[in-house]
Nucleic acid binder design. Structure first.
Length: 173
DNA sequence: ATACCGGCTAGCC
DNA sequence: GGGCTAGCCGGTA
């Protein structure tokens, strides 16, 4: 019987719902979403109590046990390590997992990211530098997020995915 | 088993 | 640079 708490947190990329267990964050959703809808989805996914808590209690740690394992879990962990202001390509993540042809599967994994922002799937772009797709808000949102983190972007492409994050770059979440 | 489906890529105009 | 194609792979029905 797990206790899941949740709150609406203010982030550098707007308001987001975040839910967490004692181990860390376990679910997230865009802040525009209806609260009852989010809470309902939590009750469907996790057995036990779901209660609202204060935003200041929201963790930055991830409850990896509540997330998918296997290939997807490994890719999510790799994505989690991409620093702000940097990007990696779908193909790079695939190669890092020893599955060099699985770029497209990485894309699918990003599209079903259970913790957007905390697991920064917006930092995963196409191999040719183009921004690629983004589930919530589309490529325009993805571009805005990358720019907000200090990535140099021209048109729909990132110029350098490995620039060090400028001073004052906002932390994850 | 088997047949799709996708936040992709490499190759070729 | 752009546009198109076939190939790719993990996940899901």
């Amino acid at each position: 019987v797990t206790l899941v708490r949740y709150s609406l947190v203010t982030t550098a990329h707007g308001p987001w719902w975040v839910a967490w267990t004692t181990a860390g964050a376990c679910a997230s959703s865009e802040g525009e979403r209806d609260e009852a809808d989010f809470a309902r989805s939590l009750r469907a996914r996790f057995r036990g109590e779901v209660v609202r808590a204060g935003a200041d209690e929201a963790p930055t740690a991830v409850d990896w046990g509540a997330l998918p394992g296997g290939f997807r879990g490994a890719v999510l962990r790799a994505c989690h390590e991409i620093p702000p202001g940097q990007t990696r390509s779908y193909g790079e993540l695939a190669r890092a997992e020893g599955a060099p042809g699985a770029a497209r599967a990485v894309g699918t994994t990003m599209a079903t990211n259970p913790l957007p922002l905390l697991i920064p799937c917006h930092r995963v772009v196409r191999g040719d530098g183009r921004i690629g797709q983004y589930g919530i808000g589309g490529p325009a949102r993805k571009r805005a997020m990358l720019e907000a983190e200090g990535c140099r972007v021209e048109g729909w492409s990132v110029l350098d995915g490995r620039l060090p994050a400028p001073a004052g770059t906002v932390p994850d979440r």
